[in-house]
Every structure is written in C-alpha cells, then in structure tokens.
Amino acid sequence: MKRTLSVLLLFGMLCALSTNTFAANDEATDKVDIAAVAENNSSIAGEYKQYAPFTVDSQEVRLYSEPVMNSEDALTTYADAFELCAEAAEVYGIPADINNSDFVAFAKAYAAMNENGTPAFVEECKDFAVYLDYYENVEINQQILNAISANTRNADWSEIASLMPTTSDSTVAAGETAQEDSTVAETQSSSYDTAEVVAYARTWWNKTNNTDYPYYAEYNGMDTSRNDYNSLDSGRSGQSDPARGWSDCADFVSQCLAAGGVPQIKSGLILPHQKTGNWYYNDDKPSHTWGGASNFYNHWKERVGVASSSADLGVGDAVSIDFGGDGSPDHTVIIVSAESTDSSKHLASHTTDRYMYYYSNGTLNPFTLSYLYGNDWTIYGYEIDEAF
C-alpha cells in the first residue's frame, strides 16, 4: 500500500507543479483570504488533496498534501496499529487521540519503527505511520496560513518558509555499489571527532543523559536525577520504568554532534530559540533546531547541505527520515559504523532506542541505511564534517 500511495502522491505533485500559480501579490496580505486562495489551488489526486504553489506579497506559498481519508475511517483501517500505539502512549502518559499532536508525533515514529509481529501487522503499522505523516499536515497547513495572515507588515518570511514543505533534493541510495571507505574518510576530516561521537552514542543509546541535558526530562515532569530512562523496541528486554516520556531523536543526535565538537550557534536577543540559523542547548530552553526533527533538518540543510548520495555519508553524519515523503522529516538518526555499502552503515537513535541493530520477534537485525531505504522512506543525510 505504501508504494501505491507514493506513486499517487508523485503523480499528484507533478500535476500540482504544472498548475498555474495564483498571484495575490497585488494586494496587501491582510486583504487576501489566504484560505480561499489555498482552496482555489487545491485538487484531489488519488488518496491525497494536493496544493499547487501560489504567491502572496510576491512570496511563494507551499502547502503540504493532506489525506482524503478522514480520521474515523483511518482508525478502522489501521485499528490494530492504532491499538499498539495507544497502549504504548498510555505508558508514556500521552492521550491516545488521533487529534492530539503529541500522540500523532509519538505514534508516527512508534508505528514506523515497529518490527514486532506478523509481516501483515508490521506493514499495517508502517502504513499507519504514513497516514499520520499526512494527517498532521491539516493542522500544519493551518499554522502556515495563520502565520501568513498575521504577517501584515511584510516581515521576514524565512521563519514562515521554514514551516513549508522542503524543496531540497533528498539523498539518493548508493546501495551495494562499493564506495569509498567512509570510516577512514570521516575520521581524518577537520576537527570533527567521530570517535567521540561513536563513544557517546554507544554510552547513551539506551539511556538519557539528564546530568548534562536535563531540559526535556524537566519539561516533561520527570525526575532529572535519573539517567536510566529509555524507549526500546516493542518486546525488547531492558525497558525502563517509567519509560522516557518524550520524542528524543533529534536531541540525542544533537548531543552526539556536540560530543564530537560541533560548535553551537546562538545569536539574537529576541526569541533566539526560534531562529532556524541557531543550534544550541541550554537548561533554560534549547533551540528548536536542537530537539525537533523537522527543525533539525531545516538547520542542517542550510548549514552544511544535503548529501546527494549516501555514498558521501560516513561515521558521525546525521540523517533525517521522512516516513511519508511529504516534505517534512519526522525522525533523526546518526551513523556510528560504516564501510563501503549502505548495508554496512549502521545507525543509532532515540525515540525508538537503537544502536546498530533493531529488535524483531526475538532477534536482532542490522539497523542500517539499507533498512531505511528498504522501507521506502525519504532520506536526507548531512556530511557534518563539511561544516568546519
């Protein structure tokens, strides 16, 4: 089903891009009914409602695709996957409500990463993750439209644009074609210490470093004196009680980058945590690029760029994952071991805590770039050492 949805989405996007864009730039933003303009540029393509780009105040507006299937029908179609996510969400203290943004963010990653159960059930979980990836776009599109409507003085559009679907090319799989030995290449590069990155990831992949990074535990009402919180694959032994109660993927990868010596950036006196150009941690409030998957992507695609091929990626490089291919990454991982092929480039992550392997029905299996591409996910990789 995922492949069918992807084909339909690609067809719809091509149709949308060929549509004449609507120009509203002759009128002030506050005099334009932005929602009506968006609706006039929408069309139904298979399972999705697509939006063609249009302009307001000479600025291009891009909106995300939305699913045609309503939430009630989705809960019937993906009943078993929803039940899995609902039970897990209860452990984390998250209400099992498809219209709750915290639940959607949690369930999207939890369902996508689940490998436990029958092949049909695992596939249903991944399809449910794709649906959620598009379902949340209804709310995100409204946020974009509201931000444009509030921008009555033609202020800087960069932060509004950061809410929109990406226009960057993704990282294409190099597959099993022999590549340069990425382990050697990254280790010898600049001042980025990939050995420290790997050591940090190995130490903390199944724990939470509240000693040095307590903000998220404190924000979520958890005891910051404990470092044993984790969130393992469903069915894997060693799960902490309580489990880590928040999505921690980008935070974990940011910590790994910091351990390798990546310089943090903080500029501006007014709401610096909201600026995409910043990337930093402090106990009061980290930048949203430190701990949010899509914000992390927005920062690093500008700071270092997206690698054109996975052949360019090696140890210490970060990777963003877009489960549905809607243009907004959902998950963040880091490469901790690499040789010459995608199947040799092993990953580490939080949210679903993994180090080089994932758990499936009692066995450990390689958690690699090949695994990501094999799920038909869209991948954005960053050569972190190129930032220096």
Score class of each variant (00 low, 15 high):
Ser189Asn: 15
Ser189Lys: 15
Ser191Asp: 15
Tyr192Thr: 11
Asp193Leu: 00
Asp193Met: 01
Thr194Trp: 01
Glu196Ser: 15
Val197Gln: 08
Val197His: 07
Val198Gly: 00
Ala201Arg: 03
Arg202His: 12
Trp204Cys: 02
Trp204Asp: 05
Trp205Arg: 01
Asn206Val: 09
Asn206Ser: 15
Asn206Gly: 10
Lys207Ile: 13
Asn209Ser: 00
Asn209Ile: 01
Asn209Glu: 02
Thr211Asn: 07
Tyr213Ile: 06
Pro214Tyr: 02
Pro214Phe: 03
Tyr215Thr: 03
Tyr216Leu: 14
Tyr216Ile: 12
Ala217Glu: 03
Ala217Ile: 01
Tyr219Gly: 05
Tyr219Ala: 13
Gly221Gln: 09
Met222Gln: 11
Thr224Cys: 13
Thr224Trp: 11
Thr224Ala: 14
Ser225Tyr: 10
Arg226Ala: 11
Asn230Pro: 09
Ser234His: 14
Gly235Thr: 10
Arg236Phe: 03
Gln239Trp: 08
Ser240Trp: 03
Asp248Lys: 08
Cys249Val: 07
Asp251Ile: 02
Asp251Ser: 12
Phe252Met: 07
Gln255Arg: 15
Ala258Trp: 11
Ala259Met: 11
Gly260Ile: 14
Gly261His: 04
Val262Asn: 01
Lys266Val: 00
Lys266Ile: 01
Ile270His: 03
Ile270Thr: 13
Leu271Ser: 08
Pro272Glu: 07
His273Glu: 09
Lys275Met: 13
Thr276Arg: 12
Gly277Tyr: 04
Tyr280Gly: 00
Tyr281Phe: 11
Asp283Pro: 07
Asp284Phe: 09
Ser287Cys: 07
His288Ala: 01
His288Met: 07
Thr289Lys: 04
Thr289Val: 04
Trp290Glu: 00
Gly291Ile: 06
Gly291Glu: 07
Gly292Cys: 04
Gly292Ser: 10
Ala293Pro: 03
Ser294Thr: 04
Ser294Cys: 06
Asn295Ile: 02
Asn298Ala: 04
His299Pro: 02
Val306Trp: 06
Val306Pro: 03
Ser309Arg: 13
Ser309Cys: 11
Ala311Pro: 03
Leu313Val: 11
Val315Lys: 00
Gly316His: 10
Asp317Gly: 07
Ala318Lys: 04
Ala318Met: 09
Gly324Pro: 09
Gly324Ala: 14
Gly327Val: 07
Gly327Asp: 02
Gly327Asn: 04
Ser328Phe: 01
